[in-house]
Simulated scan of single mutants.
Amino acid sequence: MIVITTPTGRIGRRLLGTVLDAGAPVRVIVRDAARLPAEVRDRAEVVEGSHGDLDVVTKAFAGADTVFWLAPPDHRAASLDDVYSGFARPACEAFVREGVQRVVGVSALGRGVLPNAGHVTATLAMDDLIADTGVHYRALTLPTFMDNMLTQVESIKNQGVFFSPISGDRKMPTCAVRDIADAAAKLLLDPSWTGRGDVPLLGPEDLSQNDMARIMSEVLGRPVRYQWVSIDAFKASMLERGVSEAYTQGLADMAVAKNNGLDNAEPRTPQSTTPTTFRTWCEDVLKPAVLG
């Protein structure tokens, strides 16, 4: 039995379809079962509730061999520990109690690179917490998602601009959500791996924000430019939207760390290179979102 958390999220939706199509028995944890397509409810066991709740994960992990773990964002959290390790502690207890063998988790690049990288540092602490339970653990260590650009679709569509506190010339890796889901599915369906390990996933090329603006302009057939914003302006924008101080500061610290080379420390290898280029992602995902 494979348990999948966040089955209605960007990664979870594709992952769930792939694992179901492979014929594996699947159980999902979802806050609202009505958000699942009817065909999924017909093919998978559904446990309703939060995977941060001990009773819910105890029920979901009973008889399960493998779990896909993703800590959901909590923009109102009082601390980053609440978002990551605090949220995962009930699941860690249930991993041991219910005899889960393997866990595949969504994590981040940057272990041992910089001392304070906000959300990245908190994510890596969560990895340690999970691994310390004794489960076999694979952390998908990820750079910035290409799909995060979808949060700026309206600005790109209406103003031809996107914003970030990252230097316009800093070249960094990115990866597409679909490649993350496919890598997770491969691990979930493989019962042979053991121990603890990181699985870095890097897109085929390092691009700067200015590079991305150029590619988006070419794909969309309209000018798109990149606008750098200061960390202070970035934080003010987040706080105005109701994001908590702790969550906002974590994003700011992460941006500073990435700007200082956090994601560039991992060497790209044939094994870590994912197939989707940013141009392909723009053609397949961004263009329909902007022009549709």
Rank of each mutant, 00 (worst) to 15 (best):
M1F: 05
I2E: 04
I2W: 10
I4N: 04
T5P: 08
T5L: 14
T6C: 13
P7C: 02
T8K: 09
T8F: 07
G9F: 10
R14K: 12
R14F: 01
L15N: 02
T18Y: 00
A24D: 03
A24T: 03
P25F: 00
P25K: 04
V28M: 09
V28Y: 10
I29W: 00
V30P: 01
A33F: 06
A34E: 14
R35M: 11
R35S: 13
A38M: 04
A38L: 13
V40M: 03
V46M: 07
V47P: 01
G49S: 11
G52D: 10
V57C: 06
V57K: 10
A60M: 07
T66D: 00
L70C: 07
D74L: 12
A78R: 14
D81T: 12
D81C: 04
D82Y: 02
R89S: 12
P90K: 09
A91K: 07
A91L: 09
A94T: 03
R97V: 11
E98K: 08
E98Q: 15
E98I: 00
R102L: 00
G110Y: 05
R111N: 00
G112Y: 13
P115V: 04
N116H: 14
T121F: 09
A125Y: 05
I130K: 01
I130C: 06
V135F: 12
Y137R: 11
Y137N: 06
R138I: 07
L140C: 04
M149E: 09
L150M: 14
L150Y: 12
Q152I: 08
E154R: 15
S155K: 04
V161Y: 05
I166V: 14
S167C: 08
M172I: 12
A176F: 12
D182Q: 13
A184H: 00
K186W: 03
K186A: 15
P191T: 02
W193L: 13
T194V: 09
G195E: 04
L201S: 05
L201M: 11
L201Q: 03
L202R: 09
L202I: 09
G203L: 12
P204Q: 11
D206L: 09
L207Y: 13
N210V: 15
V224K: 06
W228T: 07
V229C: 02
D232M: 02
D232G: 12
A233W: 05
E240D: 15
E240P: 06
A246S: 14
Q249V: 03
V256Y: 03
V256D: 04
A257L: 11
K258R: 14
G261R: 10
D263I: 07
A265F: 09
E266P: 05
E266N: 03
P267R: 06
R268W: 05
T269K: 03
T273G: 06
T274K: 05
T276Q: 02
T277G: 13
T280L: 11
C282Q: 03
D284N: 14
V285N: 01
K287I: 00
K287R: 15
